[in-house]
Design a protein around this nucleic acid. Structure first.
Lengths: 227, 227
DNA sequence: ACTTAGATTTCGCCG
DNA sequence: CGGCGAAGTCTAAGT
């Protein structure tokens, strides 16, 4: 990894054109060819960057990073006016088994709800996870207390797209005469207002589920809103 | 800006829990409180991070970054086992940081099309930009050569979501008796194959517009596909 | 190679 | 401050 602190000007051209005027910034060149240009504020996101694979061409006072992007080319031109620091560190093999382990993402939520489908609706029993349709799998397929079919879409944050997605699935599912009356439920940690409105219009129910409740196996306290 | 190259282990807890095992990494602490942990590969995105505002608490061999996130708290715990580099640079006052100037984003496309609505369809005249509906504004509302209403959704890349979005708007718009017969046009620099198919099914027209053509005011050469 | 869907999405705008 | 939509989204997974 190479770290350069320098006064520089950056031009990007590719999917759009961008000009970053001269100022003091951090340039990171990673072992895999990644190049990042960071300011001393505005966390997370680089001002400019190029993801690998890249070809880096360097001359004194100038660095050009290229990338093949289909017919055209992405290009990052860094004009360097003053260098305050330029150091390189060998950080070891990249195939380290030091990968990031996450817990609490949507997949996890799906696992927990598969174990406790009744949290998605009164009397729900799981028929199968990842129920296939011709445009992709529905997260959960259940039957309710009246033996009616219910398709459940699970999201961490339930927005309009989630309602649309479930609506598309239902359209396909209901083509099967046996599933003609299949209902839909959107289950999410939070369901946004606009999504609630749209769900209402699409006759899709929604329910907010609490990850902590699912984990602790506390009383669910169903907050279900029918379509 | 502070740059630390160190062998470290990182734990994040907040919206989810994540564990990053011990390895050699770059830690960036920005002047505004941003903290980034980068590996020597996998461009752009930090393995772990915290965006400002943050409170940083430091002891030898340990750094804890906290953030108020509503009721709960986001927390980044960095255990440092070996330090290879720890330098700090004064990168100047924040107002010194020249901003990034972009050109070619959707807003730009919308401006250009608002000036030349005929590029979205034969004889189109602009009635207003950002026409409000109860679920959000439509980019352009026009009338065509036959005085019929047309809602135009503008995207850089037109995918399925763009068609769905426009369909949602049309559903709302047409509730007004005066706009019952309002048509829809998706205008994008590129319209994806799947989106074309869906547009056909939804009776929405689409057109690919060329940014260069709009800029140069060359003859548009309308490539419009009716619904 | 292309498409789809998730993300600690981040970010900016507007209410 | 919260909601909503764009992003050079990025990224991983499936086909």
């Amino acid at each position: 990894m190479r770290l350069i602190v320098a006064r520089c000007e950056v031009r990007y051209s590719g999917r759009l054109d961008a000009l970053l005027p001269e100022s003091l910034r951090l340039i990171v060149v990673k072992a895999d060819g990644s190049v990042l240009v960071h300011a001393d504020a505005g966390g997370y996101k680089p001002l400019n960057w190029m993801t690998p694979p890249t070809v880096i061409e360097e001359r004194p006072g100038r660095m050009v990073v290229r990338k093949r992007a289909g017919a055209s080319e992405d290009r990052l031109e860094i004009e360097i006016y003053e260098v305050l620091c330029d150091v390189t560190y060998d950080m070891g093999s990249p195939d380290d088994h030091a990968a990031l382990a996450k817990d609490g993402v949507e997949a996890h939520l799906q696992e927990l709800l598969a174990e406790r489908p009744e949290c998605c609706g009164e009397g729900f029993r799981l028929v199968r996870r990842e129920w296939p349709t011709d445009i992709g799998p529905v997260d959960l397929m259940c039957r309710d207390a009246e033996e009616q079919w219910v398709a459940v879409e699970i999201k961490r944050v339930g927005g309009i797209e989630a309602v649309e997605q479930l609506a598309r699935y239902l359209e396909r599912i209901r083509r099967d005469p046996a599933l003609r009356s299949c209902r839909g439920v959107l289950a999410a940690q939070t369901v946004k207002p606009q999504a609630r409105v749209l769900a209402q219009a699409r006759r899709i129910a929604w329910v907010e589920v609490d990850l902590a409740v699912l984990r602790d196996e506390r009383e669910p306290e169903l907050k279900l809103f029918a379509a």
